[in-house]
């Protein structure tokens, strides 16, 4: 993402290396929660109360208590050092905001696709998107308190994930758990750098 500076253009003020990570997944899967649990800044939330017309478009099955949703994007930041910063961008969950994805994905290191075992199909579009675009991604199953737990292997096959895509369980409310998901993604991206995939099997 671009940096703005009021320094004179000739001045070589160093611009930090920005690592951009996308947090994707279906509507109500916990993207905002994950960004909030690891970010050092209050997530830039643009949540709106779900209105009646929105309820028509947004499938609320299993999400009866959800009363707000992210209409634009979440933004989080983790400063590694003076010249290295990780930015997290939650992609909007609703289909009608997908036009924003290409712009959000530009220059990103990789993506976390979040999944809810009660609504696995909601993650398919995100998985398809990153597979097609060749961007490294991991899938994190957010363990909601009232959702049944399935073995990872079952979830992997239900999601039709290729063996090279890391799949892990997480609790997006917990900082350590969200952190582990990000570590898994960065390691996966590093693996892809050293051994790039030649062809996609799908």
């Amino acid at each position: 993402m671009p940096f703005a500076s009021s320094e004179p253009t000739g001045e070589r003020e160093s611009v930090p290396v920005a690592i951009k990570i996308l947090i994707a997944g279906g509507f109500g899967v916990g993207k905002t929660t994950l960004v909030g649990s690891v970010s050092e800044v209050r997530p830039l939330r643009t949540e709106e109360a779900l209105s009646e017309p929105s309820s028509e478009f947004d499938d609320l099955d299993g999400l009866e208590r959800k009363s707000t949703t992210t209409v634009a994007m979440d933004f989080g930041r983790i400063t590694i050092s003076d010249d290295l910063v990780v930015y997290l961008f939650g992609t909007p969950g609703q289909k009608r905001f997908w036009f924003m994805w290409d712009e959000l994905a530009f220059g990103a290191l990789g993506a976390v696709v979040m999944a809810d075992t009660r609504r696995l199909a909601d993650s398919f579009p995100s998985i398809d998107y990153f597979e097609r675009n060749g961007m490294p991604f991991v899938v994190a199953v957010n363990c909601f308190d009232d959702a049944r737990r399935y073995p990872l292997l079952t979830t992997r096959s239900a999601l039709n994930l290729t063996p090279d895509v890391p799949l892990l369980l997480c609790d997006a409310r917990k900082r350590e758990s969200s952190r582990d998901v990000l570590v898994a993604l960065v390691e996966h991206a590093a693996d892809r750098l050293t051994a790039p995939r030649v062809t996609s099997s799908r």
């Binding site: 993402m1 671009p2 940096f3 703005a4 500076s5 009021s6 320094e7 004179p8 253009t9 611009v15 930090p16 290396v17 920005a18 690592i19 590694i80 050092s81 290295l84 990780v86 220059g107 290191l109 570590v183 960065v186 390691e187 991206a189 590093a190 750098l193 050293t194």
Partner: peptide, 21 residues
């Protein structure tokens, strides 16, 4: 103000990814 793109991350930046992890 001036606007600059972020420092690019390329194939050679495995070191940076290790540092981030």
């Amino acid at each position: 103000v001036s606007v600059k793109p972020p420092a690019p991350i390329g194939l050679s930046d495995l070191r940076i990814l290790k540092e981030v992890a």
